[in-house]
Design a binder for these strands. Structure first.
Lengths: 108, 108
DNA sequence: CTGATTGGTAAGTAAAGACTTACGGTAAGC
DNA sequence: GCTTACCGTAAGTCTTTACTTACCAATCAG
């Protein structure tokens, strides 16, 4: 369920840049906004999307809100990718098996 | 570079459903269109996006075009995720080290 | 207490994108 | 050949969304 939100969150280039930036070090909203060519409210909205998706988390430090990468944030996405991979492999093996059976019955 | 296209391709629910469907078995365009509540051209457009992103590949079988999951299609995305993870871990370790140094200098 | 940072939210706008119908082009079946 | 099935693309519509400015609440500094 959650991998969908993660994917749509990471689909936006600005949000990806924010994530890559926060992977290097946590940062406050204003500091982020100064590093990007968009306004601070835009950054705020992006941070909300990313936080709702579970990619980031926040801690309030007095006046400032420090955003950082959530270590477990991407696991749902990774699991989904692994699942896709598994079913594809399984389907391929199944296909190969039935194919082999057909070949066998066609024996001359 | 390519992980961006993969992410924006996988951001759409219909395209995700197509990918999940094709993970189970390859399929032609018409067969896919009959399984989904959107028109065949819509499916065609989605397939183009997914193919351009490298997630799918096509083989022409006579009249029909059979789409299937590209086994290497997701590796770029996976690599990007791993890279994010690595830099986050590295940054965290760096942070912990400088933090430890500071603690040390504050010794009473 | 007063003024200045910090940042979240509301409202409006403009661009992106997910759909539709209509059309054209190629391979299959008779 | 002529018709039918299959599918990609063009053009247009409608929704989504990424951005802006304006506003407000909360914390910090003097």
């Amino acid at each position: 369920m959650s991998y969908a939100n993660i994917l749509s969150a990471l689909a936006d280039p600005t949000r990806r840049a924010i994530v890559e930036r926060l992977a290097q070090a946590p940062s406050s909203v204003g500091d982020l906004a100064r590093e990007f060519p968009v306004s601070r409210p835009a950054i705020s909205q992006h941070l909300k999307v990313l936080t709702d998706a579970g990619v980031l988390d926040v801690t309030s430090q007095g006046n400032r809100r420090v955003y950082r990468l959530d270590p477990n944030g991407m696991t749902d996405l990774r699991d989904w990718l692994d699942g896709l991979w598994d079913t594809a492999l399984q389907a391929f093996a199944e296909e190969a098996k039935t194919q082999a059976l057909k070949e066998n019955s066609n024996e001359r």
